[in-house]
Each structure stands twice: as C-alpha cells, then as structure tokens.
Design a binder for these strands. Structure first.
Lengths: 181, 181
DNA sequence: AACGTCATGTAACTGGTTACATGATTTG
DNA sequence: CAAATCATGTAACCAGTTACATGACGTT
C-alpha cells in the first residue's frame, strides 16, 4: 500500500524538510503510530522524486555540507489529498508480542505469569509518564485551548490517543493481575 | 525475531494440529494481536521440522487426502518456555494508518475530517459488537467464572483486551468529534 | 581534540502479502 | 452436483530492519 509514501507527503505538506528531518518526525508523537528508519526513507524519497510527487533543492549548511530540502509538487499534493479522504478497512491484526504470550498463559505457572504482567505494567507506566509529560509541554505552549483550526490539532489528537491507549493497556494489565489473585 | 515461530510453537503446545488449523487459529481472537497467511505458515513449519522443534505424522482424511499433524518436540517445548518468560522491550510503533491521517488533519477541511472520523467510529463500533458477541459465547460455555487455571483463560484475556482496546478507540473518536464541534 | 548530532547513502537480509496452482472432502 | 471448506504448496514481490560506510557541523 506504500503508506510510507503518504507519511512523507503528509510531512512535506506541513513544511519543506530533509530526509533527516522526516526521520526525526518519526521520533515524536507520530512515531507511536507510524515510523520508518532512515535506510527506508532515503530510497523512498528518491522514488518519489522520480514519480514527480516531490522535488528538492540542495542547500549548503555551513561550509560544504549539502542537504536536500524536499517539498511537495502539485501532483504530490493531489495524491496526498486523494489518500487522506480515502476510507480504508480497519486493519485487524495490530501485532503485539506480549498479547501473543498472554494467549499462551496456560503454558506458564502463576508466578511466571504474574511477573511477566507486573513487568509489562511497569514498562507501560513509564511510557505513559513520558507521553503525559510531552502533552503537558504541548499544552503549555498553547495560548488558547486547542481546537480544529489550531496548527497543533493533529499532534494533540495523536498524543491524546497514545496516552489513552497506554491507560487502557495499564487498566487491563491491573485487572488481569487481580484476576490471578 | 521470528515471532511466527513462537506463535506456532505456542499453538502446538495446546494441541496437535495442521498448518490449516494454525491459519484458522489466527482468524479467532488471537488474530487481533498476531496472524500470518498460509503462504507464510507452511514454509515456517518446514523450517521448524528441520530445526527439530516440531515433528509431524501424516494422517489420511477420508479416502486419500493427506494432512500433516504437527506436534512439539522436547526441544520445541524448551524453546517455547524460554521465549515465554523472556522480557522484551515494549514496541514503540504500533502502525495505524488512520492515526497517520489524523496527524495530518490540518490538510483536511472540517467536513472531511468529521466524515472520516464518523466513518471510523462506525467501523469500530461494528467491530466491537462482533468481539462482544464472541465474549458472550465464550462466557456461556463456561460453567464456573474464568480464573487462572481455566483452560480458556488466555483466550478470555486476549478477547477482553481486544474489546477494551476498541472501546478506548471509540471513546477517543467520540471525544475528537466533539472537539471539532 | 573528542563527542554528539546532522546528514546521506547502500547492501544484505528478514518478514509478510499477493498471486499462482492443485486437489480432496463435506454440506446443502 | 455445485459450492464452500479443508488442505498444501511455490513464486514473485513489497515492506521493513540491521549493518556497513562516510563525512560535516557544533559544542564542551
């Protein structure tokens, strides 16, 4: 389906950027729901240039470091807009190795299971704290309450979804641990 | 990481089964968190036989249909037990194309966004209904309340997680729609 | 001068999907 | 007897990760 293609087009619609910047964007809140390594990004950028969906200008940073600033072409914008409105089927399998282990809980003894779940609970709680901190910072930067036309609305929605997802996971882990006594 | 390998070992630990049965297992609740197509399963089974983690006996179904019933070897059981206790880092990026679109909501107009969200809300609600129906059936089969030693405990935990995950997603969609007025 | 970050690329491999291909069995 | 399901396999391709490789820039 080439989703990375659209991830790149979407990022470039927001701003001109380099391949490195795109990789950096995947390290933020967006990365909770989509990401790619630079080794996948650079070849994809070359492909998109050939397809004329993006173009680049070479910029000199400092003395001689060349970097490529990519931007959307009209054709690229059109393809992005087409994809963004497209209704896709909800993907069934969101792979989660911990849930796979959970399915096989009958192969564990009670202590093992409790340790595994406690451990997961701990990791998830630490992850939640980090996400909540990012939200606090995002809200602090905002003057007015966030609404549809705020430039940070997309970022805000994705962050709140990531946070609620972790909270849901944590609650389920706690309830499951309680079920094991 | 060869997670499919462990998915297969885990399923075979529960019962002897064919490649077809394994594919069928991925269509149930387990498939919400892990799955594979038969075209990936059959070569993996062959590989696991070579590695001596599983073995098979050929069974004749009806007149002449040969099917291969796979089962765990002692070595396979040992590897499964090793994996099941192993603590892995929480995977960051759980890919979700809808959330990627959400991140780019600034590229949509309000009506477009509302339609996309309403649509997703609808799909998720239908999915939730199906999952809740499966849970109802599972609970009906149970005589005593489900607890750690119930043979269906793993199935139950995975199902409840899938249900709560959908509920969380739905709530977020509703709250997001409300934020758009 | 050393270290961390910015910046770009390729090669080899692994994981996963789509499509091709075949045939037996069961159920309506 | 037709259609759905059971059952097994391969080939080609696409997506994604790990490792290899290089070098400039900014800060301490």
């Amino acid at each position: 389906m080439r989703v990375l293609k659209f991830a790149i087009l979407g990022l470039l619609e927001q701003d001109k950027m380099t391949g490195y910047d795109i990789a950096a964007a995947f390290k933020g809140a967006l990365g909770q729901f989509w990401s790619a390594k630079h080794s996948q990004i650079y070849p994809e950028l070359k492909k998109l240039v050939v397809e004329e969906l993006i173009a680049f200008e070479t910029v000199i940073q400092g003395e001689k470091l060349e970097k490529k600033l990519y931007s959307l072409t009209a054709k690229g914008t059109a393809e992005l807009m087409d994809w963004i409105q497209r209704v896709e089927a909800v993907n069934v399998s969101n792979k989660d190795e911990f849930m796979l282990k959970t399915y096989f809980i009958a192969a564990m003894d009670k202590q093992e299971a409790q340790q595994l779940f406690s451990n997961q609970l701990n990791s998830r709680q630490r992850k939640l704290e980090k996400l909540e901190q990012i939200l606090t910072e995002l809200e602090a930067e905002q003057k007015a309450p966030i609404h549809f036309s705020s430039p940070e609305f997309g970022h805000y929605l994705v962050l709140t979804r990531a946070i609620e997802r972790e909270k849901g996971y944590i609650q389920w882990l706690e309830r499951s641990l309680a079920l094991m006594e």
